[in-house]
C-alpha cells in the first residue's frame, strides 16, 4: 500500500503526544511513589533526579534502591537492576525494522526514551502500517515526550511531597494494569494469543528464579511458540 500524500511530521508528532498524554495518569503515580520511597530512604532531590533522568526505568530503580537499603553490595544492586532491564534489548531489536536505517543521532535518542509505554505505543502504531521514517520518528518523539517528561517530573515531586502522596489506594497496581491493557489489542491472531499464554504460564512457574531470569525465560518461550505457530500457519497456507 503506497500513500501519495504523507502527513507532515509536525502533525504526526502531535498524534504521538495525543496518544502518549493519557499515560501521565499511570506513569505519574508510579513515579511519585519512587520519589516518596527515595526520600524516605534519605536520597536528596539531586540523587532522585539522577535516577529518574539517567536510568528512566521504574521497576529497575525500585529494585536497586530496595537492595541498597537492605545492605546488598553495589554490584548486586546494579546487577539486579540491569537484569530487570534486559527485556529492553528485545525492544531494541524489535525496533530495528522500523528505525535501523535512521541516522545514529536519531537512534541515540530513541534508545534513551525506550521505556515500556513508549515502546508499546510505537509498536501499536507501526505494526501493519506503512509510513515514511520521518513520520515514525515524529510519532515516537511525540509519544515519548509526555511519558518520559512526567516520569522525571513526578519523581522529583514525590521526593519533595512524600507524605501527601502515599495514601491513595491501589496506585501501586497502575503499571501492571497498564501493561495488560496495552497488550490486549495485540492479541489478534492465534500465534499471539499462544505466545502470551505460554509466557504467562512460564513466568508463573519461574517467578522464584534469581535475577529476574524467570521473566526472561518466559518471554523467550512465548516468542518461540509464537514464531513456530506462525511458521506452521504459513506452511499449511
Amino acid at each position: 500500500m503506497s500513500r501519495a500524500l504523507s502527513p507532515r511530521p509536525a502533525t504526526v508528532f502531535w498524534e504521538g503526544v495525543r496518544d502518549g498524554t493519557p499515560f501521565i495518569v499511570m506513569v505519574g503515580p508510579f513515579a511519585l511513589l519512587f520519589g516518596v520511597v527515595a526520600a524516605e530512604l534519605g536520597l536528596s532531590l539531586a540523587e532522585t533526579l539522577g535516577f529518574s533522568t539517567l536510568v528512566i526505568a521504574g521497576a529497575a530503580q525500585f529494585a536497586t534502591l530496595e537492595l541498597l537499603d537492605a545492605g546488598a553490595p553495589v554490584s548486586v544492586a546494579v546487577g539486579t537492576g540491569l537484569a530487570v532491564n534486559l527485556r529492553m534489548a528485545l525492544y531494541s531489536a524489535s525496533l530495528v525494522p522500523y528505525f535501523g536505517r535512521a541516522p545514529l543521532r536519531h537512534r541515540a535518542w530513541i534508545a534513551y526514551a525506550l521505556v515500556d509505554q513508549v515502546y508499546a505505543l510505537a509498536l501499536l502504531r507501526f505494526q501493519g502500517r506503512e509510513e515514511p521514517q520521518a513520520s515514525r520518528l515524529a510519532y515516537y518523539a511525540g509519544a515519548a515526550a509526555p511519558i518520559c517528561g512526567i516520569w522525571i517530573l513526578a519523581c522529583a515531586l514525590g521526593s519533595q511531597a512524600q507524605s501527601t502522596v502515599a495514601a491513595v489506594p491501589g496506585l501501586d497496581f497502575a503499571v501492571p494494569l497498564t501493561f495488560l491493557a496495552m497488550v490486549t489489542p495485540m492479541l489478534k491472531d492465534r500465534p499471539s494469543v499462544a505466545a502470551a499464554a505460554v509466557a504467562t504460564g512460564l513466568a508463573i512457574l519461574g517467578h522464584e528464579l534469581p535475577l529476574n531470569s524467570g521473566m526472561l525465560l518466559a518471554a523467550a518461550g512465548g516468542m518461540v511458540i509464537g514464531a513456530v505457530l506462525e511458521g506452521r500457519r504459513e506452511a499449511h497456507g
Binding site: R87, L90, Y91, A93, S94, V96, P97, D116, Y119, A120, L123, P176, F179, L180, M182, V183, M186, L187, P191, S192, V193, A195, A196, A197, V198, A199, T200, L202, A203, I204, H207, G214, M215, L216, A218, A219, A220, G221, G222, M223, V224, I225, G226, A227, E230, G231
Partner: peptide, 18 residues
C-alpha cells in the same frame, strides 16, 4: 524477525503475571 514480532505479546504478560 519472526521471533521479534512476538516480543510485546510475550514480554508484557511475563512481566505482569507474577
Amino acid at each position: 524477525l519472526r521471533l521479534l514480532r512476538y516480543v510485546p505479546v510475550a514480554v508484557f504478560p511475563a512481566l505482569v503475571a507474577p
